[in-house]
Design a protein around this nucleic acid. Structure first.
Lengths: 341, 341
DNA sequence: CTGAAAGCGCTTACAG
DNA sequence: CTGAAAGCGCTTACAG
């Protein structure tokens, strides 16, 4: 069953391909009668324009690319959902790639998307990524690019963010408010901007409250996994018996830490208060439930697509693109893993 | 910066487009010298074939479509990851769509993918889907189709599955082995094949052990959410004070039930043993941790893509496609939510 | 070993 | 209101 083409409709009706094409797209210069005839036949033959040909002619594919570090991850899957839902509304399809936190893979995937000529690219960077040439080549290629969550400050494009520094500050301040004196921080790797900012927020809160910053209380994690959470929870207790609070870069790690403390018979929050980051669903169902910063993944995804869409449109109309940083609100969600005031 | 074309390379080198095209693809009938010349220039100009033109000529896009009911879901995101990782190896890109368990949306998305002329489609059905015309139209369109997890028995295509009936049987048998006498079942909606099969496995285990089947112990859930788990846990206790075990269709619901029992001060597993299904990561970290059936999402995804790839290849070579059902192994993972033997 | 030509299926500027 | 023609950028059967 070969797909129906304009040519077939034209021949059947004894008119030209041009007219058929125009009729289907409701050009004003085609008679009503012809339009009706064409549309009817197209309908009965179940005509679908060959998108390959349309892409070639119009130079656009109505498809965007999305690269995330990891798909099986509450935050990123929420972002993906936000992006897809918004894209669908505007008639765009989304190709999804996973970088596995690898710079090499990320770079290859960018090239792949570029060679596929997607209309735009959405990306959250791999932890490893320190070189931005591949991103600049997207820009040089005049393909709209929007970064979210894990961004590179130096790349000149629109970004969707939260105020990591402020959120981390608030989290740490909350620990201080409930009486914590020795507050540790499990931070992410050195490169990603959000792990830098969260660290800086933590540090500033300490200083603003006249608590001496002690670098031995800061642990630099690598893969931000549940197991790392367990490992560093144990290590922290061995290194510092006097710790009474921890601000942890991400919920999954915090959940590992809570689990480890449960095992070691260290009471959360009585002995140690814990705050995570991101508000994974899981955090509300573990015991004790986790105090955390709610990070609106779905909204971030929606907003990121909206920005990208705007840039795609502007590009088509040869309008200048003005880059924009959008900062979304976060919220401290207080649960059982922190002492009450 | 306009993308480089074959024509430009040809003109620069003073040879024909044909030869350039052939040189780049290492046709044997082009001289080594010409090939070197062409490849060098293509390299320096950073030539990338226009995929729109290639698609139109070759009638394939090296892109497949994937429809899942929900993305923010441990099982499905694992499947997605499996599919993408395997697709990438074979040079295929994946467009992802989410049906939200809606038949109408699913149908529209199938049409969209068909009109985009993807090389193949992978799908896990929406709970609502009872009519398979849209799937048959994929087949009629000669687009390879593979279903996984939530499948329609009646559609004539390859499928990747687990043995739901057997897995449910084993789960129920385990409850019986540890001494449960009144075993309830929280099942999924009426239509999806896997909720039917899990129910049948449950029932058969009861009968094989001479335990009377009591339909009032079976609760039919709608959206399989955490909140539904809480709701029906409470209801179950009100309806049946003597229940001592529950086999629950999916982990998220089971986690809701455990949480509710914790709140109601009903001890799991002392008062009631609970078994879930799927082995979400979350299930290993809640208290008590959840006994469940491990369902290999990542493997299901990989296998589904492999089957689809085989069919795409066969179609291209005009070989007959022989449909295949692949059944993957599951495993009972015993944790704290069930009594010990 | 090289290249002219046809064609994939559309869209659109232009002529009538 | 209709249509001939050019062209998007490739691939490939065919001729030389």
């Amino acid at each position: 069953m070969k797909p129906v083409t304009l040519k077939q409709i034209a021949e059947t009706l004894g008119i030209s391909i041009t007219t058929v094409s125009k009729a289907l797209k409701d050009y004003p210069d085609v008679s009503k009668k012809t339009k009706a005839l064409v549309k009817d036949l197209a309908q009965t033959l179940n005509y679908k324009p060959n998108s390959f040909a349309v892409n070639l002619r119009t130079r656009e594919s109505k498809t965007i690319g999305l690269i995330v570090p990891e798909i099986v991850h509450h935050f990123f899957s929420s972002v993906i959902k936000g992006i897809i839902s918004q894209a669908e509304k505007k008639g765009y399809l989304v190709i999804i790639l996973q970088s596995n936190e690898s710079y090499t893979l990320e770079k290859k995937q960018i090239e792949l998307l570029l060679s596929k000529r997607v209309d735009g690219i959405l990306i959250s960077l791999a932890n490893e990524t320190a070189n931005y040439n591949h991103l600049n080549s997207v820009l040089a290629n005049e393909t709209p690019l929007v970064m979210f969550d894990k961004i590179a400050k130096l790349v000149n494009c629109s970004k969707v963010l939260i105020n990591d520094r402020e959120a981390a500050y608030n989290a740490t301040q909350h620990l201080i408010n409930i009486g914590c004196k020795r507050i540790a921080h499990f931070r992410g790797p050195l490169l990603p901007q959000n792990s830098i900012d969260r660290f800086l927020g933590y540090k500033k809160a300490l200083l603003d409250n006249d608590i001496a910053y002690d670098s031995t209380l800061v642990y630099i994690l690598k893969d931000m996994s549940y197991d790392e959470g367990r490992f560093y929870a144990k290590k922290l207790i061995q290194d510092h018996k006097d710790v009474d609070g921890i601000f942890i870069n991400t919920d999954l790690v915090a959940i590992g830490a809570i689990k480890e403390f449960n095992n070691l018979n260290i009471k959360v929050p009585e002995d140690i208060s814990i705050i995570g980051f991101s508000n994974w669903f899981m955090s509300s169902v573990i015991s004790p439930s986790l105090t955390t910063i709610d990070q609106p993944g779905f909204e971030i995804g929606k907003k990121a697509f909206k920005l990208l869409f705007r840039e795609i449109k502007n590009k088509k109309n040869n309008k200048k693109i003005n880059y924009k940083d959008v900062i979304l609100e976060t919220e401290l969600v207080i649960r059982e893993s922190t002492k009450t005031l």
